[in-house]
Design a protein around this nucleic acid. Structure first.
Lengths: 242, 242
DNA sequence: TCTCCTTTCGAATCATCGTTATGAAACATC
DNA sequence: GATGTTTCATAACGATGATTCGAAAGGAGA
C-alpha cells in the first residue's frame, strides 16, 4: 500500500559513487548534500534517509572503497611464487585506484579529518594492509626477498604504491602507457632492491639521524609535527584540539 | 602619519603557517577566513588586504611551501658520489615534510581542486622536480644506476618519497625511529633496485597490460560489489565538529 | 589639543550550508 | 473512486561562509 521506494540500494550506491566523483572533481568543500542530490537526480533528504547524516555518507563512502579493494585482493589467485603474488598485489592496487579514482582520496588521504570511523568501517581497511603483510611474509619465508621486518617492508611497499597511485590519478605520470612503464619500473625496482641483501654496501654514505625538531622554521615552532606522533595503525583521527 | 601597520610580512607569514596548521588539523572545510584570523590574532579582513581573497591565501601557501622545499634542495652540497646525492635528496624531502607538515597536503594533495595556480606560483614546484631529474641523470651518467629513462626514474622516486611522507605525516609509519628505519629501508631498496640492471630476470611473471578502458571511467559500471552488506540505515549520528 | 590621513576592525550583506518539518505524491485496498 | 498509509520532495530554519564597507583607531604635523 505504500508509495514505492526510490531511496533504495541502487540510489545508495549511486550516491556513494557520485559523491566520490564530486569530491575528486571539486574537493571536499564541494561535497554538499544539495549538490550531491542534484547530481544523483534525487533530493537532499535522500542522504538523510539512507545515511542518517552527511558524516554517515562519508563513512559509507570510505567503507565502500575498502570493501571493493578487499574484494579485489581476495579474488587474486595465490601461486607458488610469492614474489609474483606480491607484484600482483601492487598491480591490483593500481587497478583499484584506476577503477575507483573518485574514492581514492577518501580512502587514503583523509580529506575530512574530523570524521571518526567506527572500527567496523575500518575492518576492510586493516584487512587489506594485512594482506600485504602476509604476502611479504610469504616472500621472506620462501627466501624470495632478503631478510627484513615484514611490517616495515609492507609499509615501504604501501608507500610506494600509494604514492604512485596518487601521482597517476592526478595525471602526473603522463599518458597511461607512460604511467604503466612507471609502475613496471617501480615494482621491478622494489623487488630487485628487496632481493639483494641489505648488508651489501652500495653506498659509502650514511643517512642523517633526525632529532625530532630539526627543520628550518616552518614558522616559530621548530617541529609542529602534529601528525607524526600517531600510532602504528591507521585507526581514526583524533579530533583536533581547538 | 598613518596608523602603524600590522598587516605586514610577519602577519603574512603567520597567516600562511597558521592556515596550514588549520588545514592539516581539521581539513579544507575548516580553513575559513574567520577561524584563521582568530587563530592568528587578527581580523578576517587581514586576509583580504594581504592576499586579495581566500584563493590568494591558498596560492601563497602553496608557493611558500615550494619555496621552502626549493631552498632546502638548493642548500644541499653536491658531492662526487651522485648516488649519495640522490639519497640525500630523499632525506631532504623527508626533512621538509617533517618541518612543514602543515603545508604538505596543499603542496602535494591538491585539497582545493578548483584553485588554479598561475605559472609563477608553480615555478618552484617544477624546479624541485627538475632537481630530482638532474640528480637521477647524474647517477646514470656516472653509471651509479642501471640505464633507464631519467624522467621515469624520477617519477618513481618521487612517488616513493611522496607516499612515505604522506604515511609518516598521518602517523602510519609509527614512532619516529620506526619511521626512520622505513625511510632507510625504502631508499636503500630503491637504490639497490636501480643499480641492478633490469634485464636480470628476477621473476617469471609478467605484469598485466592495462587496456585503457579498464578503469578510467570512474567505477560507473564495474562491480558495485558492496550493496551486499545490505544495511541501509546508519544509526550513528556524529554531529559535525564543534 | 586639534586636524588629517592611513590603516584596521567589526558589523552587515548575501549566499549557501546541514538538517528538519510538512504536505503532496503514489500505490493497495475497499 | 475514496481511503489510508508510506515515502519523498520542497520549503523553511538557524548557522556560518566569503566578502565588503563604514566607523574607529592611531600617529604626524599644526
Amino acid at each position: 500500500m505504500p508509495r514505492p521506494r526510490t531511496h533504495d540500494q541502487a540510489l545508495r550506491l549511486r550516491l556513494l559513487d557520485e559523491g566520490g566523483r564530486l569530491l575528486a572533481a571539486e574537493g571536499p568543500a564541494a561535497l554538499t548534500t544539495r549538490r550531491l542530490a542534484e547530481r544523483a537526480g534525487t533530493s537532499s533528504s535522500a542522504v538523510y534517509s539512507l545515511f542518517g547524516d552527511k558524516a554517515g555518507l562519508l563513512r559509507a563512502m570510505f567503507a565502500e572503497g575498502f570493501h571493493r579493494l578487499a574484494r579485489r585482493f581476495a579474488e587474486l589467485p595465490r601461486s607458488d611464487d610469492p614474489a609474483s603474488d606480491l607484484m600482483a598485489l601492487g598491480y591490483a592496487f593500481r587497478a583499484h585506484a584506476l577503477a575507483n579514482p573518485h574514492l581514492y582520496d577518501l580512502m587514503f588521504r583523509s580529506p575530512f579529518p574530523g570524521l571518526d570511523l567506527p572500527v567496523e568501517d575500518c575492518e576492510d581497511a586493516l584487512a587489506t594492509f594485512q594482506v600485504l603483510v602476509s604476502a611479504v611474509r610469504r616472500c621472506l619465508e620462501a627466501g624470495a626477498i632478503a631478510p627484513a621486518d615484514p611490517e616495515e617492508v609492507a609499509k615501504v611497499l604501501f608507500g610506494l604504491v600509494d604514492g604512485l597511485a596518487g601521482l597517476e590519478l592526478r595525471g602526473w605520470l603522463g599518458e597511461p602507457e607512460v604511467a604503466g612503464k612507471c609502475w613496471e619500473l617501480a615494482l621491478g625496482v622494489a623487488l630487485r632492491g628487496l632481493q639483494r641483501p641489505e648488508e651489501e654496501p652500495s653506498l659509502s654514505w650514511r643517512p642523517p639521524s633526525y632529532r625530532s625538531g630539526e627543520g628550518r622554521g616552518g614558522g616559530r615552532e621548530p617541529g609542529p609535527v602534529a601528525g607524526s606522533q600517531g600510532r602504528a595503525v591507521p585507526a581514526r583521527r583524533a579530533t583536533s584540539r581547538r
